[in-house]
Design a protein around this nucleic acid. Sequence first.
DNA 1: ATCCAGTACGTTTTT
DNA 2: CGTACTGGAT
Length: 747
Amino acid sequence: MTRTPLDPETYLANLTPAQREAVLHLDGPLLIVAGPGSGKTRVITCRVAHLIAQGVRPYHILAITFTNKAANEMRQRVAALLPNAGVWISTFHSFGVRLLRQYGERLELDRNFTIYDQADRVRMVKAALDAANIDNNRFTPETIQGAISKAKNQLLTPDKFAGTAKDYFSQVVAKVYPLYEKKMRAANALDFDDLLLWPALALKNDQEFRAEVDARFRYVLIDEYQDTNKAQYAIARGLSVDHPNLCVVGDPDQSIYKWRGADIKNILDFENDFPDAKVITLSENFRSTKTILAAADSVIVHNRQRKPKPLHTANAAGGPVRVLQFENGVEEAEQIVKRIRAAVQSGQRRYLDFAIFMRINALTRMLESAFIRQKVPFQIVRGLAFFERKENKDILAYLRLLLNPRDDVSFERIVNEPARGIGKTSLEHLTSYAEPRGLSLLAAAAEVDKIPAIKGKAATGLKSFVILIQELQKFLSATPDEVIRQVLDRTGYRKMLKASGEEEDQERLANIEELITAARQFHEEDNSRTLADFLENITLASDVDGWDDKQDCVAVMTLHAAKGLEFPVVYMVACEQGLLPHERSLANDADIEEERRLAFVGLTRAKEELNVTHVKLREFRGQINYTVPSMFLSELPHEGVAHEDLSESSNRYRAADYWRKETSAASKEWFDAGLDLATLKRQKERDGDGPGKSYREGMTVEHEKYGRGKITEVSGHGALRKIKIRFTGGERAFIAEKAKLTIVGKI
DNA sequence: ATCCAGTACGTTTTT
DNA sequence: CGTACTGGAT
């Protein structure tokens, strides 16, 4: 095999000494502590290139990223340096799947397993609860599912978990967990956690397997190591025994997935786990302005459970970080969109320069309507939303059942969709026939003649369903989009939607057509990819994976999704106590610290301009509440942070209209600068130029506490405007905005 | 079996 | 506020 020789200068150029050191490190464990914007992706990519240049076969290199999007980007960057390098780059979960599909039979696993998502798992837990006859009034299936997930993240199998179950809830979970597992095996399904748990346990228990895989992946690189859980840790360790060339990259300050089982100890204890590990810290930030970085640093230093890490940048100071207060959520959304639109219209920015972050998904709604109302292009980065629509889930369930006839969850979903006269009671009969015989629901349906309880319409319905599935299975070798088309036509799904007069159903049909397009494109990109790959891709897709960063759109996403990204202008909305930090985290310090890290992640995404917003009144699930600004706002530095109060909306607007007529030229200038008229008016007022309270030197004012005095000095602007007043008892300074004064006489 | 209406419910973050 | 499930009527 010949490879184009690679000149080290092509990838070593423009690296800092620390980055260079990390790239040049060859064998042995390596920990790279990489602050935000320190070029870690670049370092990983260059390291891969360097390893290959030094003679390591690409086949022996494994790079693990946090999202598929990151994996694709890294693949492209490696390909730019080394075309067709063939390095294995994927997420932990995708890696798990590939390992399990490859070594399936060795692990007593059918390699055609289906991956169950959150919703599927909950259904499975429900089925397990039914089967065990546990009254599920007490705990929701979701809660139990969460506990099972947590157990799996800690590598606890059902029997091990049972040993740890002390309280009543854990004991219920301990009862459900083995049943859930049994059903999962019967359905030939694995959940997200299994994709890590199975490889982790196999590496632990099967030394031959471990040695083989370790020898295969001699150089392992793991990004976002601070967010790995116990299973991922076990995999990393298992792959680094005989060939301990493990390179992990992460930042403890950006660990935000503790709730999902991530263990920050993995990165903090790396040096203990690998005593001969080399540690390199990348602390120079190439992303943000000095002001933004200082603001973020000023917040994160409040975490007590933290190793101090200086952040510095050679970038310019830049403009101030803005803390904006609005009256309510609608105002917040409208004003932000307005500012974005103004900046784009003035030619300073493009829409894709902007991102809006929020703590919870529920907050996207108001932004969505503001964007639509003002006709500003945007993308809500919530990748799965499209595939989670009922019609698409139905079609996908058909596909899953075709590939894995034992997939009972999918069977239940579609057996009567479109309607075939198979109701709840028939399904119960079918289940009670299948259960003791160890049959899948589809297999049981094939024997419907042997089930006396099911007759008439239900029996014929089930029979025709079985025949339908057999028919459709013949098309499995066709292209993914063709299979979907066949499903759509032969199941009568298309007919059902077409026959309906509902507008909504026509839309549903259009959505399925879009699904077909997605499948076709998926296959066209790489025609070795199968239908199974398509389904897997959808299930393992993360939120950011569905985001097209080339489109000229404003990106709207959760703080979690924002990890690893950067934008010229960032708006972080709803920075209010209870939302950020979230109320569910307020009870203990460790959780608040994770919220602070989340805030830190958000703040450090901004390159040039950072805006943090909060409102006076927040409407949430129909209730309007007064808010308290986020505790993190008070942790921002005084310097370089400008506070603007843009609330008291309704009055302002009327006044602003009046103002516009008076000073159209001036207002245009401000408007073009991205400021709305209300802000303009307010600033003018504060500065003493407009109507309302304007303080000038020499004025006589009355203070509610100190009595009458004379203004001796006026300085600063906006919220920082200060006045000095000489009272009979002496001189005092006030913040103009805050001081309770009445003007008594103008000079 | 299916449809509809009314209510109960719970709401962080996600591979 | 919205969804999801229940229970009743057809």
